[in-house]
Design a protein around this nucleic acid. Structure first.
Lengths: 209, 209
DNA sequence: CGGTCATTTGAGAAGCCTCAATATTAGTGG
DNA sequence: CCACTAATATTGAGGCTTCTCAAATGACCG
């Protein structure tokens, strides 16, 4: 499967911080796996308010939510220097006809994204959402071989706030409180998890494991 | 494609109001299209608080979010008398290997659900969410041949509130206000949309069309 | 027709937001 | 290399949306 995929992959980038990878409404042609860097997806409502939908780390796939409409339903922006592996979706789908494992993997990826979108849709406190956000980030970094205890927040406070449906000020205050309580140490974009167990306990209502 | 699907469909039900169709944690074996009735999906956190994830009307498919973990990540409960068309997922997937149209349809359904989950995840006012909920319900009924102007709310106020991340009291007050302003007429579970245009305008920030 | 449950209504409280000011950092050009 | 500027982040005070609590009303069912 990997060899076959290799034939139709296209390495793109680098995109610099702030550059658009795709824009809402553009024709959907390809999905892409993040190779390096972080991608932010968001929508902008008629009044100009932005709503951040997600952050994508190396190894994660963007564009899956565009299949349905054949158009990208959101913007994707590089938060730092980003490189991608792009796959023409028609070609991947055709290949998946011959490779059951590839088809199954695509189904899993799509299904997983439903779950992710669901997670933060719930009715939880600011504290719970922030804790869940940090734990989730930590696990995703760990899954890609980075340290789960210490990592860089590649996104701005505003983006975190927007993603968590909070004001930027509230994010600031939560960071401070978590730090005062010995849960984390945060300096600028540099974040260290000091008490994973207690943080996980806070996130429990959302993550449930 | 339809003929082939027909061979592996299994009609199940009826389930009566309150009966579970599947429970969180159960092994995932099948997806199902709602034939009649309404299904509610929800998760329960360790403290026992319920979080409603969605409502499924005739023609809509439940269980897609279970593919990823091979277990149902939520409970599905009948809100009234429900009948389903159940499809063994391994069988559908195998069939999709031979039928590109079926594969494409599954990809679309999954992708669509990502979008649905995203919709109400955003940071919107109670009024915006309620308006978007009613407009969305209306369109979904219309898509299945029912009246988009007048329909029955098969779910309790508590369920609507929980789904929209509101208190049941807030839902009550919103219904009253919408009615006072001539947007809707609501009596018990019977809902009529009187001013679709203005309701749509309220939902604009969420639905964006 | 009484009991139970769902819904509505009102009053007060809480969590989070907004606004405003300050502090800090990063980027830019001299 | 450093001052200057713009952007980002932090902190405080007050306000608003929505929640919680309590009670009353209305619907449904045996």
């Amino acid at each position: 499967m990997l060899r076959e995929l290799h034939c139709l992959v296209e390495h793109v980038g680098p995109y610099e911080a702030g550059q658009h990878i795709f824009r809402e409404g553009e024709a959907f042609t390809a999905i892409a796996a993040v190779r390096t860097g972080t991608v932010k997806t968001s929508v902008v409502d008629p009044a100009g308010r932005e709503q951040v939908l997600g952050f994508f780390l190396p190894g994660e796939v963007i564009g899956l939510n565009a299949i349905h409409q054949s158009r990208y339903p959101c913007n994707a922006v590089a938060l730092d220097r980003v490189t991608l592996c792009r796959f023409s979706f028609p070609m991947v789908a055709t290949l998946a006809q011959r490779l059951p494992d590839l088809q199954a993997q695509l189904f899993r990826l799509l299904s997983q994204d439903i779950g992710k979108a669901t997670l933060l849709a719930g009715d939880y406190t600011a504290e719970e959402r922030m804790a869940a956000f940090l734990i989730t980030l930590s696990r995703r970094f760990a899954a890609r071989g980075f340290s789960p205890r210490r990592f860089l927040l590649t996104m701005a406070r505003t983006d975190i706030a927007n993603y968590l449906r909070l004001a930027a000020e509230t994010v600031s205050r939560l960071f401070r409180r978590f730090q005062d309580e010995g849960l984390i140490r945060v300096d600028r974009r540099d974040l260290e998890i000091l008490d994973e167990a207690r943080l996980r306990a806070l996130a429990q209502p959302i993550l449930r494991n």
